[in-house]
Design a protein around this nucleic acid. Structure first.
Lengths: 372, 372
DNA sequence: CTGAAAGCGCTAACAA
DNA sequence: TTGTTAGCGCTTTCAG
């Protein structure tokens, strides 16, 4: 059991004496850090085995130039006592922490959460630990970028776009290992879904059902023009194809969650303008709120109005009606991000591209034929 | 702007020469770690200011014995150039990483996700960074415990219970800074909701509505008897009060999500036994699946059957019908965990208790009067 | 109040 | 194939 944890002892640092089991007097007020002695050192382990620290280190780092027999002996012992080198010391000398930072401005978003989970797993498989941080504003984001610059982390994945694109452009020059989710300047690695294609697919489906007044309910205006709403573009594209661009109506919600969808749909449905026969929403959560709004007004879905989502979260397949949506694969997205970041950390500049993955249309119960 | 990130330069380590801007030849294949020089060193910064490293260190660590004027001068310069000490080096000598590990066996659970977000924020406010890891099995969990033992992290929060309680008991003896979510042995810090009280409240509400056949749909059997389902206990308690214990029926689902609730409810509703007039579910997500199952069978909710949840997630207030549930405050839970862990790290053994927070009953639309 | 000296635990260059 | 030497960048005694 290589990961068996080690027993601790309490030290009296001034006297240099060790009290196994703890000093009952001082324990209550002494910070934990001062109470315990450092974990087993390499020196001791090497001595136990009868080799030098260096040989031990070589085995642990899978370096060449160790006799097979020695390696075996070392590995056996290490495994038995559950030794692992001190990570800080290792990071200090290797100039590499094996830590990856993930920062995220909207950790409440259900799709983001699923991607995060997959991402962490895949990074872990490659020996990278995940430092997670929620960014509330540009200040946090800058701090995360600073951590990368100072090499506190080996790489960064950003689900956050507070920084102006001009600053992101620095990333291009400095060639840091960073992966952005969603959008970013050319020359920076980006992973995103094909939102435009997926949304166009949904709209065409609705057009096929006879809908003509298809309104869009999306996120608030982006902080930077570069961050324009890709999904909205797909909606507009499909309407244009059908020559319905003129009647296109778009409404920006306060947030891309159920509350935002609820409020946004209320505006769309109770407004003075002609009522839409379908509302396509930026994501499932908004659609969910919109569904509620429609019903509170007394509209049947999909009888009197159709409402669609995006992301294809499993949860909403159990809703009533189940959402018609575009399913994205968070597992795949997370894997793609992990792989891209890993390539960048390894110095493969070829990974510095925009990676776009596809969604799949998923017919549900929330969209039906347009009523005359 | 203290967090302005620093410019990098590419080094040719063999020649010891620095090529600002990068060596275009080697860049593509050289790992990023080898391509960049280490960030600014303390030595240089101290020299620029005209003090020794020691004084600089003292200012940065808010140690006493620095003249106010010196402190001011140092702080100004540090702020201007955005210097921050190298974290690995700092951790090595301080024997403290300012890192906290969070491990979690069910990161998909919506309540857990919200708690995680709050927890991370509160830890961050106290200067602790969050290392996040999904645990898939006891092996991962042991590894996380090992990381604590080796002092790779200063503390741990566990939303995961793969390890047998006997192992957790070790935590009592070693007095490590660890906070468990849900349950744990005496002497280990635990944070959990009062599930039993909350669920009893829901059941009493249903009893008041005239329900008599109230079935429970909960998680699969726990891995260890200690981890018994608290919410189920509350359900049973309330039924006992009403003298209905005999008719109590419990069904274990495969998972505590919508899919589990769906399948579990199907079993409960399609089974040969007498149909329940109400199903109380372990959490909102399961209730959500149960709702779908009831409707697919053709049962109206709450007309023909009442279904309740637990957790009180905002999302389900937008569902139709909105769930009758018990609302837990994830923000509060996260804060409580952060605070407890912080106290333990600081050596306050008084924090090593079971902290129980209350939920609040929330009447929704998914429960109504029992029909004769 | 300040600085000089002594490591923290480990890996990488260089010798043997 | 192995071990010896020399730091990584920082904080913490201990003198001044």
């Amino acid at each position: 059991m290589i990961l068996e944890y080690q027993k601790l002892a309490v030290t009296d640092r001034s006297a240099g004496t060790v009290f196994p089991g703890g000093d009952p007097q001082a324990a209550r007020i002494t910070p934990y850090a001062a109470r315990v002695k450092m974990t087993t050192r390499m020196e001791d382990v090497a001595k136990e085995i009868g080799v030098s620290r260096v040989t031990l280190s070589r085995v642990l780092n899978e370096s060449p130039n160790v006799a097979a027999r020695t390696r075996r002996r070392v590995l056996d012992h290490v495994q038995r006592i559950g030794y692992r080198p001190h990570q800080a010391a290792r990071a200090l000398v290797r100039r590499r922490s094996d830590l990856v930072g993930i920062f995220c401005s909207h950790p409440e978003n259900l799709l983001v959460q699923r991607i995060l989970i997959a991402l962490q797993s895949h990074l872990y498989e490659r020996g990278l630990k995940t430092l997670f941080q929620t960014t509330r504003g540009a200040e946090h984001e800058l701090e995360a970028l600073g951590a990368l610059a100072r090499r506190e982390v080996d790489g960064l994945v950003a689900f956050s776009h507070y920084s102006p694109p001009s600053r992101l452009a620095d990333l291009v020059r400095d060639r840091r290992p960073i992966v952005l989710s969603g959008y970013g300047p050319r020359g920076v690695a980006v992973v995103r879904a094909n939102g435009s294609g997926g949304m166009a697919r949904i709209v065409r489906y609705l057009l096929g059902l006879g809908h003509r007044r298809i309104h869009y309910l999306g996120p608030p205006a982006p902080m930077y023009p570069e961050a324009r709403d890709d999904r909205r573009a797909g909606w507009l594209l499909a309407l244009r194809e059908a020559g319905l661009e003129k009647s296109a109506m778009h409404s920006a919600a306060l947030a891309i969650d159920a509350a935002g969808g609820f409020a946004g749909a209320q505006g769309l449905l109770l407004g003075a303008t002609s009522r839409p026969s379908a509302i396509v929403c930026f994501n499932d959560e908004m659609a969910w709120g919109a569904l509620r709004a429609a019903r509170e007004i007394g509209l049947e879905v999909p009888g009197q109005i159709s409402i669609t989502g995006f992301d294809g979260l499993d949860l909403f397949r159990y809703g009533w009606p189940a959402l018609t949506t575009c399913r994205l694969d968070p597992e795949h997205a997370g894997q793609l991000m992990a792989q891209t970041l890993f390539r960048l950390i390894e110095g493969d500049e070829g990974a510095r591209q925009h990676h776009v993955y596809e969604g799949t249309f998923q017919a549900g119960e929330s969209a039906g034929p347009a009523t005359a």
